[in-house]
C-alpha cells in the first residue's frame, strides 16, 4: 500500500505481535501488522496510543470488525481469517484512520482436489484419449497457487499402470493418458501427498471387427447367426449392439436390426433361393452369403 506515510498519527500506538512463521511486518505510524499470513493462521495486531477504536479487516473474501483499546492487542484466532486474498486493515479512533495492507496466502497444505476427468466412457486403444485436470485447494477452499507436484495414475486390472507427475501452475495441472486395449473400468486417480481424488473411466469395445455370420435352414426360413462379435482388440462387443441382416432376392429385400444377445446376433428370415444375405453393424460390413437352397 502506498501513500499511507502521509497519514497523520492515529489514536493507537503500534505494537505488533506476530503468529509463528510470520516474517515481514508492515508498519505505519499507528498500525503495525504482518504483511502476509497464511490462511487460517492466528496472529495479533497491537495498537498504540489510547482511547477506544475500531479495527476493520476488509476484503472481498472476508470482513472482520473489532473494538480495540489503544495500546492493546487485537488477537485474530486461528481459522478466523481464512480466505486468501488482499485485505485492508483499518484502524479508526480519535484521530485519522490508519490503513495497512494484508495479504492472506493459501495454506501450504493441500486438502482437496478438484479433478476434471474426461471422458467417463471411451473406446479402447485411443492415444491421449483420456484427459485429467486438477485444481489444488487448501482446507479453506483457497486455490494453492504455489507449484505442487500432482501424480496422475490410470490403472486397469489387465494393464500396467500409467503414471504422470505434473507440477501445478497457477494452481492447475493436467495430463493426457491412453486408453488401453482391454475393456473394463479403469481407475483414474489424482494424488498430491495424501490427498487423492478418483474417477472411473469405462473403456468400452470399439467397432466390430471381422463380422462373420453363418446360415442354416430352419424349416421354410433361413437361420442366420453371427460368430461371437468382437472388436479388433478381441473385446466382446456388448449385448444390445445392433447388427443388421439384409436379404436381397429378386427386386425385393428383407431387413432386420437385431441386438446382440449373449455375444451373438441371430435371426430367422424367409428362405429365398438365390438370395444374397449380408450382415453389418453400424458402418462395418461383414460377410455375404448366397442362399442357394
Amino acid at each position: 500500500m502506498t501513500g499511507l506515510s502521509a497519514m497523520m498519527c492515529c489514536a493507537a500506538m503500534v505494537l505488533v505481535s506476530l503468529a509463528a512463521g510470520q516474517a515481514a511486518m508492515a508498519q505505519s505510524s499507528g498500525l503495525t501488522l504482518p504483511s502476509s499470513i497464511a490462511a487460517g493462521s492466528a496472529f495479533s495486531i497491537q495498537t498504540s496510543g489510547s482511547g477506544a477504536g475500531t479495527l476493520y479487516i476488509v476484503g472481498p473474501g472476508q470482513v472482520i470488525k473489532r473494538d480495540v483499546q489503544g495500546g492493546g492487542a487485537a488477537f485474530i484466532s486461528a481459522g478466523s481469517l481464512h480466505n486468501a486474498g488482499q485485505y485492508l486493515v483499518i484502524l479508526t479512533g480519535n484521530g485519522p484512520s490508519e490503513t495497512q495492507a494484508l495479504t492472506v496466502t493459501p495454506a501450504a497444505q493441500p486438502a482437496a482436489l478438484s479433478f476434471l476427468a474426461k471422458p467417463s466412457r471411451l473406446p479402447v486403444g485411443l492415444s491421449d484419449g483420456i484427459t485429467g485436470a486438477v485444481y489444488v485447494f487448501d482446507a479453506y477452499q483457497n486455490l494453492i497457487t504455489a507449484p505442487e507436484p500432482v501424480n496422475f495414475e490410470l490403472s486397469s486390472p489387465a494393464q500396467p499402470e500409467q503414471t504422470r507427475t505434473v507440477i501445478t501452475r497457477n494452481g492447475a495441472a493436467w495430463t493426457e493418458m491412453n486408453s488401453t486395449a482391454h475393456q473394463g473400468n479403469d481407475k483414474f486417480v489424482a494424488r498430491i501427498g495424501s490427498v487423492t481424488s478418483m474417477r472411473v473411466v469405462e473403456q468400452v469395445p470399439g467397432d466390430p471387427c471381422g463380422l462373420q455370420m453363418t446360415a442354416s435352414p430352419a424349416g421354410s426360413e433361413v437361420k442366420l447367426a453371427t460368430a461371437p462379435v468382437r472388436d479388433c482388440s478381441g473385446n466382446a462387443v456388448p449385448d444390445g449392439t445392433v447388427v443388421t441382416f439384409t436379404e436381397a432376392y429378386g427386386n425385393s429385400q428383407s431387413t432386420v436390426d437385431v441386438p446382440i444377445k449373449r455375444g451373438i446376433a441371430a435371426v430367422e428370415m424367409p428362405a429365398h433361393p438365390g438370395a444374397l444375405i449380408s450382415v453389418a453393424s453400424g458402418v462395418v460390413m461383414g460377410n455375404q452369403i448366397r442362399w442357394e437352397r
Partner: peptide, 25 residues
C-alpha cells in the same frame, strides 16, 4: 487467460487489477 482445461470445463485467467476501496461504517 493462462489455462483452458482439456475437457473445456474451466478457464483460468490472471487479472492484474487496480481498484479503489472505500469502506463505510
Amino acid at each position: 487467460i493462462v489455462f483452458y482445461s482439456p475437457e473445456g470445463l474451466s478457464i483460468e485467467l490472471i487479472d492484474n487489477v487496480d481498484y479503489d476501496v472505500q469502506v463505510f461504517d
